[in-house]
Simulated scan of single mutants.
Amino acid sequence: MRRRTAIVVVAGVLTAGLAACTDEKSAAPEPVVWSKVDVGAAEPVVLAQHSSDLLIGLRHRGAKVVPELQLLDGTGKRTPIAVKPNPASPYAFEAIWYSIAYDGKQLLALGGASGGAHSNTRWTVWTGTPQTGLVERPQNFWTFGGQTAGDLFSAVLTPSGGALLGTWGGVETGNDAMVWLPKSGGMWTRQDPTKTVLQSTPSLLVGPGFGTTLGTGIVLVGSQVRLAPNVVAQEAAAWRSTKLNQGWTRIALPEPGNRSQANTATCAESCVISGYVDGQLAIWQLDEDGTAKRLQGVPSIPVGDKDKLPPPVVNGEQIVQIVAQDNKVKVLTGRDGHWTVQESQGPEGLVTDAVLMPDHKLYLIAGTSLWQTTLS
């Protein structure tokens, strides 16, 4: 059975009058009205954005059909981007998009499909441009597979090049955070985390689960588990590089409570990180100098270990975060210490991704549909 999920959008004022007082005696804020976006017969699974271009990754559930990719431009025009699997790579034909990175020129995508005797995820890597299409780059089995294989979760593009992010069997113990970088011939190779903060040790296990970029570097978010005699403490954490896979540092996110996890992040000049502390929604800010703080006054929204949190959205001085509660979409508007909760009209179900465009249109994947509303 799928775990109950919560959807919360932390946003700027969505319609006139959203700045209503949150005092118990005040009238409830007006609901946020969403409209469904036509993407054809397929199901949206992931979004990526650069400038006024929105990329929509789609799948055909239950069918072994090549995954789709569409570009929605600032005028609302939808254009299919060619997706070209290698004929010798059977899992590419049934891949589901896990992550798509786009920097305005290059595309880098990560796909996965269950297969083999143990139904493990078979990963596929795709590169290209919107003009030439997305081409699969077959890898050998040991690139992402084997007895020490971990997980993959994000594809990123930095000014110094692309990277795939995940975990791998630890040099000493547990799993290490792992970075794959491209090499000649379209192949990708694991980087050695030994003696860096990406390596787990007998006293500290690293556990990232999401990655993005900040400037020339990479940001990973997840949790660290401190191990000591009679003590096991899971705390929200972030890892940041100065340039691609160089200069990694680890940041323990403040006020971690008894048990916490950072699930997702969005970075521009600084990062907004969302996760949970003791089973409730938590939001942190990570500045470029490495200073982190937990934002105060966030309403009590239940978030569990398996719940999905789409990346937060920054709209001016406000933050937009999407979580789901009892399959109902809610909108949490705010900044540090000041928040407003709204209901929604339209979307229901699990929420998996969200993107804010320059024209203040907010796109949201909820259930099996793509939805849109406009922030003011």
Rank of each mutant, 00 (worst) to 15 (best):
107 L>E: 00
139 Q>H: 09
343 E>F: 07
361 K>A: 12
308 K>S: 14
287 D>F: 10
301 I>C: 03
152 L>I: 01
356 L>A: 02
63 A>T: 07
333 T>W: 09
343 E>C: 03
54 L>Q: 00
78 R>A: 07
270 S>H: 14
56 I>E: 03
209 G>C: 10
166 G>M: 05
367 G>W: 04
304 G>M: 04
138 P>M: 00
103 D>G: 00
327 N>C: 09
297 G>I: 09
70 Q>V: 04
360 H>Q: 15
109 A>I: 06
363 Y>I: 03
195 K>I: 03
350 L>V: 15
82 A>Y: 01
252 A>R: 13
76 G>W: 00
2 R>F: 11
264 T>A: 13
343 E>R: 12
9 V>D: 11
59 R>K: 14
196 T>S: 15
46 V>E: 05
242 T>Q: 14
171 V>E: 13
210 F>D: 04
204 L>S: 14
144 F>G: 11
5 T>L: 14
343 E>A: 14
241 S>G: 06
373 T>Y: 03
274 S>N: 06
115 G>I: 03
283 I>W: 03
91 Y>D: 11
25 K>W: 14
12 G>D: 13
187 M>E: 15
174 G>C: 07
59 R>F: 02
263 N>P: 05
148 T>A: 15
324 A>Y: 06
10 V>Y: 10
270 S>C: 05
124 T>Y: 02
20 A>R: 13
214 L>F: 07
181 L>G: 08
356 L>K: 03
184 S>I: 11
217 G>A: 10
116 G>N: 03
342 Q>V: 10
81 I>V: 11
160 S>L: 08
115 G>K: 04
345 Q>C: 07
184 S>R: 12
197 V>F: 09
116 G>F: 01
285 Q>M: 08
74 G>D: 02
19 A>R: 13
282 A>L: 07
145 G>F: 08
5 T>C: 11
241 S>D: 09
194 T>C: 02
266 T>Y: 12
212 T>R: 08
117 A>P: 03
190 R>P: 13
156 V>C: 01
125 V>Q: 04
28 A>N: 11
349 G>L: 05
74 G>N: 04
118 H>T: 15
156 V>Q: 01
254 P>L: 12
89 S>H: 09
236 A>H: 04
185 G>M: 02
311 P>V: 13
149 A>S: 12
121 T>I: 14
224 Q>E: 15
315 N>Y: 12
354 A>R: 02
349 G>D: 05
177 A>N: 15
170 G>E: 06
152 L>W: 01
106 Q>N: 01
152 L>Y: 02
18 L>C: 12
202 P>L: 06
230 N>P: 01
117 A>F: 07
221 V>P: 07
249 T>K: 15
176 D>H: 03
366 A>Q: 04
203 S>V: 15
3 R>W: 14
310 P>N: 10
315 N>P: 05
71 L>H: 01
242 T>D: 14
265 A>Q: 05
337 G>Q: 08
85 P>Q: 08
357 M>L: 12
122 R>N: 14
207 G>V: 05
217 G>K: 06
268 A>I: 02
367 G>P: 07
303 V>H: 07
176 D>I: 05
371 W>H: 05
148 T>Q: 14
